[in-house]
């Protein structure tokens, strides 16, 4: 930025319909450019440095904290839920075990009761059967006696009828015995 060149150039207003020359290299415009750039850039820097950047940074970090907190709470809730679920599972397993044990006991006692009652019934039935057999045997013997007596009487009657002789009871009995092979 040569001083004399500038002062001569700025005597006429820059940009005043002078198409000659490459516009960005017209040094007489540089002071104005630097001035306005310094003002605007400094202003923007202060605004971004003092207002925008802290606001954006705090908003972003607040959001990040919020998300992290929410995640932590959610994690805690999940842990609680998992613990509750585990407790429920153990309680359920315990209850199931108790129920199974109770059912087992019940079944055993019922089965034992049934067995006992069956054994009693069997015993009673066997006793009845034994008594009945005794009675049957007695009745059979009695019946046998009746049959041989009837045979003896019949033999006495038959002999008396056929021969007119009276056979003694003892002879008749012996004869019946001999005939039946008893």
């Amino acid at each position: 930025m040569a001083g004399p060149a500038n002062t001569t150039a700025t005597t006429e207003v820059p940009g005043k319909k002078e198409p000659a020359g490459f516009p960005p290299f017209k040094t007489e415009t540089f002071p104005s450019q630097f001035f306005w750039l310094a003002i605007t850039f400094a202003f923007l820097f202060v605004v971004l440095w003092r207002l925008a950047t802290p606001r954006i940074a705090s908003t972003i970090s607040a959001r990040r904290n919020q998300i992290n907190d929410d995640l932590a709470v959610a994690q805690k809730h999940r842990g609680d839920a998992e613990a509750a679920s585990a407790a429920y599972q153990t309680a359920l397993a315990g209850a199931r075990a108790r129920a199974t044990a109770l059912a087992d006991n019940n079944r055993k006692s019922v089965v034992a009761e049934i067995d006992k009652q069956r054994a009693d019934a069997d015993a009673r039935a066997n006793a009845d059967i034994a008594k009945a057999e005794l009675r049957i045997n007695a009745m059979r013997d009695q019946a046998k006696g009746h049959v041989s007596n009837a045979a003896r009487d019949a033999a006495i009657d038959i002999v008396a009828h056929l021969t007119g002789e009276t056979v003694s009871t003892d002879d008749a009995t012996a004869a019946v015995r001999a005939a039946t092979g008893a």
């Binding site: 700025t10 207003v13 450019q33 202003f43 923007l44 605004v47």
Partner: peptide
Amino acid sequence: HPIYFTNQALLMLIVTVAASLFLT
């Protein structure tokens, strides 16, 4: 060095104000 208010200065002001307003 004379300082002019140029078309470039106007655009710099617009840019700065627009960016400041947008970001705040």
